[in-house]
């Protein structure tokens, strides 16, 4: 699905990602953890096609294609979805209009006709139920005046609407109460299929109680310093990142 090889990237000349290699296979869930500022969102931004992050080295192959050559909207239409750490407000643009435009662009890309208004509204209804998002939210302007938690749930709703092949969720669990956390986690689990994959960026083990990752990576100072199974998340929760930092320093000394 996704192969990242020795990816290096910088923002305004400052090097942020310092050689990341990672492979995500169909059906897998990868968790990425790591301290604040380690580059998790930057990695997500590179994958989604944000132009202010400059890739200086390395390759990213997505479904056999060179991802870095594709525009952001083509990546989206090819099935990459980014759940934003900080979802953006677009005043005056209704969720209905926004999602209709997005869904129909995806359909056009696949050579399908646009959905009729009634089919579209039915789809909205079904997906709203699936991810248990409040009906009222979908009738408002995109994220405008949404609470932090509502914005995150709205990201999951959009993911459900667009049915991506690779969903990157950047701290979608942060700032959620217990019920919302369960909703988000259920959303992921319901959308999980043998042929699609998730990269879940998180600081907390609690999400991983619901969404069981196949692999956990620790990103530290722009590099993946540790990769293991789901038990790594538990260990991190217990010991914090100092333990990893020490390990790295020891390795350097040794």
């Amino acid at each position: 699905m996704l192969i990242i090889n020795n990816l290096k990237a910088s923002i305004e000349g400052k090097s942020i990602l310092k050689g990341i290699s990672l492979e995500v296979k169909p059906g897998e869930i990868h968790a990425i953890m790591g301290p604040n500022g380690s580059g998790k969102s930057t990695l997500a931004a590179v994958l989604a096609g944000r132009e202010f992050v400059e890739v200086t080295e390395g390759t990213v192959t997505y479904l056999g294609k060179n991802l870095l050559e594709m525009s952001a909207e083509d990546r989206a239409k090819e099935g990459i979805f980014l759940g934003f750490q900080y979802p953006i407000e677009i005043p005056g643009v209704s969720m209905v209009n926004f999602m209709k435009t997005a869904v129909n662009e995806h359909r056009k890309h696949k050579g399908l006709d646009p959905l009729s208004a009634s089919d579209f509204l039915k789809m909205m209804r079904d997906k709203k139920e699936l991810v248990e998002i409040d009906s009222k939210l979908a009738n408002r302007s995109v994220n405008e005046g949404f609470s932090g938690g509502e914005k995150k749930k709205n990201e999951i709703f959009q993911m459900a609407m667009l049915e991506p092949k690779l969903a990157i969720l950047d701290e979608t669990d942060s700032g959620l109460d217990i019920d919302a956390l369960r909703i988000v986690a259920n959303g992921v689990n319901k959308l999980k299929r043998p042929d699609n994959s998730f990269i879940v960026i998180t600081h907390y083990q609690r999400l991983l109680d619901y969404v069981i990752p196949d692999v956990v990576h620790v990103l530290y100072d722009g590099k993946i310093v540790k990769t293991a199974g789901k038990e790594l998340a538990l260990e991190l929760e217990e010991k914090g990142y100092d333990w990893i930092k020490k390990e790295i320093e020891n390795n350097l000394v040794a």
């Binding site: 989604a48 096609g49 944000r50 525009s71 952001a72 909207e73 989206a76 239409k77 979805f81 980014l82 934003f84 979802p87 953006i88 677009i90 643009v93 209009n97 926004f98 435009t101 997005a102 662009e105 995806h106 890309h109 995109v142 959009q158 667009l162």
Partner: peptide, 17 residues
């Protein structure tokens, strides 16, 4: 960019916004 990431072209995004 938020619109782009949902598959909406920049031209259409400006129109929407």
């Amino acid at each position: 960019f938020y619109c782009n990431q949902r598959g909406i072209s920049t031209e259409d995004a400006i129109g929407l916004i």
